[in-house]
């Protein structure tokens, strides 16, 4: 199941009426949206959306019927079991490719606000601003211990830039944290908090 499909299923299945709706579908041979809505005390549109979503996911089947030439759908349970299977391997970041190592340091006048953790020797959060004037938006990132320690050791704006690997080594961060460090660096480069110097 791809992530978008799983998200759609999760959204509808988490509705507080979802269990009652499946209970009805299990008891009735087939049911229309208006019948289900009246039985559960829902708005007809709510019931229709739910049934349509389940049909689009292949959990229900529907049949068009006519009442005095007015067509409508009747829904029937098509499956007795729903399995959600999401492949997370697509998110797992491989080790960085070999190539020229980029050196980084904090951008001068980045305007970011760093909050030091109570325990010291790491940053607990960084706040960045985007936009101008009234449209200015604040984004506060809470950092993991590894990210906080990395940011604590990031070279200052006028200091010699260092590679991420060297900073991790200086901060005593294990290699298993490379993906989350990379994620943070990418985000802060994008936000104009970190500047990248090619080659070193």
């Amino acid at each position: 199941m791809d992530f978008a499909t799983a998200a759609k299923l999760g959204t509808y299945i988490s509705k507080d009426y979802a269990r009652d709706m499946f209970d009805l579908l299990a008891k009735y041979r087939d049911i229309s949206a208006s019948e289900a809505a009246s039985r559960l005390g829902l708005h007809i549109r709510t019931a229709q959306d739910f049934l349509e979503a389940m049909e689009s996911l292949g959990i229900l089947s529907k049949e068009e019927v006519y009442e005095k030439k007015r067509p409508y759908y009747r829904y029937t349970l098509a499956r007795s079991r729903i399995t959600m299977d999401i492949d997370l391997t697509e998110f797992i970041v491989d080790a960085p490719e070999e190539g020229p190592v980029k050196a980084i340091r904090e951008m001068k006048n980045s305007g970011a606000m760093f909050t030091t953790a109570r325990g010291g020797n790491r940053i607990s959060s960084v706040t960045v601003w985007s936009g101008e004037g009234r449209g200015k938006k604040e984004k506060r990132l809470s950092l993991t211990n590894a990210q906080g320690s990395f940011l604590f050791h990031l070279p200052f704006p006028n200091a010699a830039p260092m590679s991420s690997g060297s900073i991790m080594e200086k901060a005593g961060i294990d290699e298993i944290y490379v993906p989350e460090i990379k994620d943070l660096v990418d985000l802060l480069v994008e936000s104009g908090v970190i500047e990248v110097h090619p080659g070193s």
Binding site: E106, M113, F114, T116, F152, H153, L154, F156, P157, N158
Partner: peptide, 11 residues
């Protein structure tokens, strides 16, 4: 000279 002020602590 070179400014480079930041509010981060310096290890």
């Amino acid at each position: 000279l070179g400014d480079g002020f930041t509010e981060r602590p310096y290890p």
